[in-house]
Amino acid sequence: MQNIDEKAVLKRLMTYVVLIALALVILAPFFIGIWTSFLPTMSIAKGDLFNTNLSLDNYIAALTKTPILRYLANSLVISTITMIAQLIFCSMSAYAFVFLKFKYRKLFFALFLVTMMLPFEAQIIPNFQTIKSLGLLDNYAALIVPFLTSAFGTFMLRQSFKQTPKELKEAADIEGLNHFQFYSRIVLPYNKISLITLGAYSFLGAWNQYLWPMLTTFSNNSRIIQNGLKQLQSEETFNDWGMIQASAAIIVIPTIIVLFIGQHYFKSGMNEGAVK
């Protein structure tokens, strides 16, 4: 008995040692980043990381001396609109693929999937030409219009909608709901979790864009935060690393908030009790 207990304890101990070591490797860069954002730039330049001369000066400088707030606002507007548009359009097309019967439904869906196989980088030149001839360069629209819908979102919601019990559709038919009522009153609430997942995914996707906004925006009026961060580095003759680090810390905050809200809803069992 004693022997087995010791073995189990040892095994558990080893597990935790490995977990802690891995956690340190993964989390260390974040902690170093946040730590340095409180240090004066002089100390960072000298490599004096264990300084205790901490202050919020870098944050105040980032917020007052640079257009970071403008960048944040740009990002927020673009990400929010992209998220809402994708939720609306993807859920509608997914509904059509699941609940409407039309000719060549499978073929159309296969075409949808094909666009998923094509990397975005391969579409950049035609997209750029289109946006340019529409006169949308350096405008919010340039960052929103190409992302109003996504094949991935449609695919993901279609899979989720297919899980909706067919009895709910039949019950709705008997109550006389039309397609739009069934979509808005039953399908959307039933698939709330998938919608929240897609919402978080598309928001973060828009928030973290870099290549496309770099090509299509040139002024602070439309530049989004990721490109703005890069801008801070080259605009200054002397790189104020402490301030840049503070800016980076600031722009991570919305990402964390979105993940946090999302996490709250990713609970299983929310649809229990519908059938059987």
């Binding site: 009895e167 039949e170 008997i174 649809n271 229990e272 519908a274």
Partner: peptide
């Protein structure tokens, strides 16, 4: 003009 009760109940879980 009829109603139906399903074997699997078909309740709306979010209501």
């Amino acid at each position: 003009n009829l109603t139906m009760v399903f074997q699997s109940y078909a309740l709306f879980p979010f209501l």
